[in-house]
């Protein structure tokens, strides 16, 4: 599961930097609006449906926080 999320995040962000725990994915612009849209769309495709209105977007700032979030919705 962790691996799936990691590779998905790298794919939508287009960079391995997305896995760097010290980077704020939103402030750095790595997880921009389009990457965010793709991430949610791809997760939905995998049967994990995260509604943007029901989660705090701040949870998308870091890879670990994203993994934790996805697991809650699994």
């Amino acid at each position: 599961m962790d691996e799936m999320i990691r590779s998905l995040l790298v794919r939508v962000c287009g960079t391995e930097d997305a896995l760097d725990e010290s980077i704020d994915l939103i402030d750095s612009g790595i997880l921009d609006s389009l990457a965010f849209i793709e991430l949610l769309t791809e997760l939905d495709f995998e049967g994990i449906s995260i509604q943007p209105t029901q989660v705090d977007r701040n949870r998308f700032r870091n890879i670990n926080s994203i993994i934790e979030l996805v697991k809650e919705y699994q």
Partner: peptide, 12 residues
Amino acid sequence: PTFLRLCLCDHG
């Protein structure tokens, strides 16, 4: 259209 795509990510 990009903003509409974002809205559509939510099933609500």
